[in-house]
């Protein structure tokens, strides 16, 4: 199994490169359009920049297509990296921050690529790939010791349940990241009405759709965590900080879902709640750094 662990690390390196390349391409796409829009506004008095303006500028568009290509490669390589590591460890990615974050990069890129395909928009790529790239840099900054597959301590020896618990968490966090990207663009769109961005309706829908995947998943995370805590400690809820941080995140998205049926809240205010929600996700994700409690050995050190 030594070879599998090594192969997993190699594939992670490949995924990191693909993420970095995708990030560059999506950035070129975004910056290229911003520049073009400026020049278009500056040079042409009568001409308005609309969605069809791309006809004259194949440059940024092909950058975005390369972004998608690299994005898919990132998802594939990260997925294979997670898979080979799972083969070596016979369990899901839950024993330390390295394997958890690696799986997060996989699901984040995959979820984004699926959203990109479904909605046929590539403008979210710049934001999502920034998050993915940040995760990759974080992964490289972790001590190399964590690249090894460790045996489980007795409390974590509940493979099926822990694998499900953590997988659901990763899916939830990844979809929340997509909704975060959509919310940022939505807020920009609402103020600036940028022609090359997708319509506000679509951005709003991407944000909402992503949350409708993530919200039930996070509920599942809380429930599976309770079942595990019940089996391991005899208490399904102990007000452990990481538990309550996840609950807080869930409640924020609960607020978001309710505001969507409120006149005057749907739109800008809902989008702002999505931003708060993602900050909460980050706090829950890195909670191990702030909290003691049962999740402390979740493997920061």
């Amino acid at each position: 199994m030594e070879g599998m662990v090594r192969l997993s690390f190699y594939l992670f390196a490949a995924a990191s490169i693909a993420v970095a390349a995708a990030w560059v391409c999506y950035m070129v796409y975004a910056v290229g359009f911003i520049r073009l829009r400026r020049t278009a506004l500056a040079t042409s008095t009568g001409m308005t920049v609309t969605g069809s303006s791309t006809e004259h500028v194949p440059g940024p568009m092909s950058a975005a297509r390369f972004g998608s290509l690299f994005g898919w490669f990132a998802a594939v390589f990260a997925g294979l990296s997670v898979l080979t590591r799972a083969i070596a460890s016979h369990r899901g990615p839950y024993s330390n921050m390295y394997e958890f974050s690696l799986a997060f990069v996989f699901v984040l890129t995959l979820a984004y690529m699926l959203f990109e395909r479904f909605y046929n928009v590539r403008q979210l790529g710049a934001i999502v790939m920034t998050i993915a790239l940040g995760m990759c840099l974080y992964l490289w900054s972790l001590p190399p010791r964590m690249r090894e597959v460790d045996a489980l301590n007795p409390a974590l020896q509940n493979r099926p349940l822990m694998t499900l618990h953590v997988s659901a968490a990763i899916v939830a966090y990844a979809t929340f990241a997509v909704s975060f990207a959509a919310a940022i663009l939505f807020l920009i769109q609402l103020r600036k009405n940028v022609s090359w961005l997708p319509s506000a309706e679509m951005l709003d829908d991407i944000g909402f759709r992503a949350v409708t995947i993530g919200f039930p998943m996070l509920a599942l995370v809380l429930i599976l965590g309770s079942i595990w805590a019940h089996q391991a400690w005899g208490a399904y809820w102990s007000w452990d900080p990481k538990e309550t941080a996840a609950l807080f995140t869930w409640l924020v998205y609960g607020v978001y879902l309710h505001t969507r049926s409120l006149r005057g809240w749907r739109g800008q205010r809902s989008a702002i709640i999505l931003l708060i929600g993602f900050v909460a996700v980050g706090f829950t994700y890195y909670g191990n750094y702030f909290f003691g409690g049962m999740h402390a050995y979740g493997g920061v050190n």
Partner: peptide, 28 residues
Amino acid sequence: GVAAGILILAWFVAGRAGLSDVGKGGIN
């Protein structure tokens, strides 16, 4: 071609990061 490029580049990056040492710790 792009895939091959990524994989070759990854070989250098991972190699510099100590690829040959990975896998010997933990359960191994």
